[in-house]
Amino acid sequence: MTDCLKSQKISVSANNLGCFRDQFPIFNEISFSLSAGEALFLRGANGSGKTSLLLVLAGILPYSGKFEIKRFGENQQDIPANQLIHFIGHQNAIKPELTLKQNLQFWAQMYNGDQTSISQILEKARLFGLDNFLAGHLSAGQKHRLSLCRLLLSPRPLWLLDEPTSTLDSQGDTWVSDLISSHLANAGIIIAATHRTIELKDQKKTKSLTMGANK
């Protein structure tokens, strides 16, 4: 997985991004650039546009300005931009009627990922032994963990995370910061909206952007 990710090296740059929803400006003049192995933490009050910015970067919302993903690896010029991205938002995309394993199997196949490591991924998320448990019976924090498991199903360089630690316990916080650190170590890029500070091993590689300041 690590080698696979190294070959997908990218850098991203945003220039003067703006976003309107129903003629109402959500944010404007957002600029940043990140090279491989860097993280950007979006901060700001509720309603300052953090989630909207992530949705713009994920290619869901229309925007003004310029956002570019540059690919450096070999043989990856033909990978569509949407397949370079993992987006984990507030909605966890979990079907309560299916088991944990069935949920992850579906996403592994949708993301062209690896199905054989699902049990190991669940173990890392502290959902070990729950493979055949119905996802509807999980607690909110466990559902969020299951949703974060999608990040590990297939190696993709750009992770967009919306409040990755919001419902997690302290062990979960550590797990997420480990995930983020190892993704950065593998030359991945992370853009995360967060209120709580995420402790990382290498603080030098993180940037932070406060939203809502230039409204």
Partner: peptide, 14 residues
């Protein structure tokens, strides 16, 4: 749509 599956399918390989 409500559980976010459609949103995540934007990044699927199909």
């Amino acid at each position: 749509h409500e559980d976010g599956t459609l949103l995540s399918l934007h990044h699927a390989s199909i």
